[in-house]
């Protein structure tokens, strides 16, 4: 344990404070991301994935968003202690983010070349000429001909826009790249291309990646570790191979159970009954307990604590301490 991990989130609590009361978007989040690794963040809509990511970037809309407690250690330094000025140089320079929808994450009235150049000139001392050249190099790198630097976003297809977004994010060789559902808005063939591109560039730039997704397939292929989020909590966290081979938490099992099988019969798709709970009005005890098919009496009384079921495999459940699996 000589080097601190690149990103170490400890007991992060993020709330949205409304007039009627607080919404707990992220509750007691603990995560660790080693240098050069990829961490997958899986969960339903509203599970707090994006909030957690914005929290790391300190980009939460405040108010109503508020980081109540916890620490976000990046290279051993707590990002929550940084001033706004310091954060500005970290954003983009050390931590970059790719947003969900490439259609809207580029400025429609600036050329793509200008937008990459802007990123470079904000975070480096390169001369204007060199910045422009580097921007063109980045375009080449993501597979867009450099002559197209003078194009406007509306002249590009969705996949090309996402490539530009990736070029912007990687232009300053960030140590951590947060990708918030980078392929959700793209169709399947383009998804594969973009993912391949990200994989290649991640290795070339030796960047760590925090991949937010609700697509288990992408996570399985891409990530070293996976965290499953539910109602603002990480309910299960393990290496991807371990998690996919040996899911323990009933929610994780439910997720896997609801993936249609190619070889299976034509029966109805298995689903998890119920809906994600309202984050402003969570059920008592374990937030998953009303939908859980193996919930016991203690589940509605006391919130479970994370337990290490196996080495490096954490689970947030009363019933699963490794032994009693149905």
């Amino acid at each position: 344990m000589s080097d601190p991990p690149l990103l170490d989130i400890q007991d992060l609590v993020i709330r949205y404070e409304k007039r009627k009361g607080a919404v707990c978007a992220v509750e007691g989040l603990n995560l660790r991301l080693e240098r050069g690794k990829t961490l997958g963040f899986v969960g339903e809509t509203g599970a707090g994935k994006t909030t957690a990511a914005l929290g790391i970037m300190r980009l939460l809309p405040e108010p109503p968003g508020k980081i109540v407690s916890g620490r976000i250690l990046f290279n051993g330094e707590n990002l929550l202690d940084k001033s706004e000025d310091e954060m500005r140089s970290i954003r983009g320079g050390k931590i970059a983010m790719i947003f969900q929808d490439p259609m809207t994450s580029l400025n429609p009235v600036a050329t793509i070349g200008d937008q990459i150049t802007e990123m470079i000139s904000l975070h480096s001392d390169l001369s204007r000429r060199d910045s422009i050249r580097k921007a063109s190099d980045m375009l080449d790198l993501v597979g867009i001909r450099r002559e197209r630097a003078g194009d406007y976003p509306h002249q590009l297809s969705g996949g090309m826009k996402q490539r530009v977004v990736i070029a912007i994010a990687l232009a300053c060789s960030p140590e951590l790249l947060i990708a918030d559902e980078p392929t959700t808005a793209l169709d399947v063939t383009i998804q594969a291309q973009v993912l391949d591109l990200m994989k290649g560039l991640k290795e070339a730039f030796s960047t760590s990646l925090l991949m937010i997704s609700h697509d288990l397939g992408i996570v399985a292929e891409f990530c070293d570790d996976t965290a499953i989020m539910y109602a603002g909590r990480v309910v299960e966290y393990a290496s991807t191979a371990e998690l996919f081979g040996n899911p323990i938490h009933p929610y994780t099992r439910g997720l896997f159970g609801s993936i249609p099988s190619i070889t299976g019969g034509k029966g109805d798709l298995r689903t998890i009954p119920g809906l994600t709970p309202d984050a402003s009005n969570l059920p008592p005890g374990c937030p998953f307990q009303p939908r859980c098919d193996i919930a016991g009496p203690e589940c509605s009384k006391e919130a479970p604590r994370p337990t290490e079921v196996k080495f490096g495999h954490y689970c947030l459940c009363h019933l699963n301490r490794g032994e009693n699996q149905p």
Partner: peptide, 23 residues
Amino acid sequence: EFIEASRAVGSSNIRILFRHVIP
């Protein structure tokens, strides 16, 4: 979203206002 994206690359408020919002 592109305003949030330009915050995420570390642009200051003034820069966002004049380079991204007003145009």
